[in-house]
């Protein structure tokens, strides 16, 4: 999944937890602009919230880019961090996986389920990039 054909409509530096709130509200606006139903907007913003928070808490920060997809009925995001990366992606995607105590670890797997398309690219020492596309309607 690449966003070559898509319009980048916003870039948000993720440095503190206020930025997570900003990221959510900017993605919500983008979904509204493409005529999303409330349900689809809620689903995708939730997915973005998971991914963005992951970047902040596990990698100390990152960058979120928001794209309007060429077909106008979808919004894409790319969340890139320079953290230590994920060793076992499959394990990280499974519900229940967590590297923190007390966290229930549904984040990444949940984000995948809540988005239309989900791709994760990570290797130890090189950081993690998550790309997701959210659709504006079920059909």
């Amino acid at each position: 999944m690449v966003f070559d054909e898509a319009d980048r409509i916003a870039t948000i530096e993720l440095e503190q937890d206020r930025d997570v709130v900003r990221a959510r509200s900017r993605v919500a606006d983008a979904m509204k602009e493409c005529g999303s139903s409330e349900l689809m907007q809620t689903r995708f913003v939730t997915a973005v919230s998971e991914v963005v928070r992951n970047a902040l808490t596990h990698a100390g920060g990152g960058t979120l880019a928001i794209y309007a997809m060429p077909n106008k009925r979808q919004v894409g995001i790319e969340c890139r961090d320079c953290g230590k990366g994920i060793e076992d992606i499959d394990a990280a995607m499974a519900d229940g996986f967590t590297t923190r105590r007390g966290s229930m670890g549904r984040g990444l797997g949940g984000a995948k389920r809540l988005s239309k398309t989900f791709a994760i690219d990570s290797s130890p020492g090189k950081g993690t990039t998550v790309r997701m596309i959210g659709a504006c309607s079920l059909r």
């Binding site: 907007q41 809620t42 689903r43 389920r113 809540l114």
Partner: peptide, 11 residues
């Protein structure tokens, strides 16, 4: 409603 549906989907 949309929040309830999303939470259920998250398990």
């Amino acid at each position: 409603p949309a929040v309830a549906m999303t939470l259920v989907e998250l398990g």
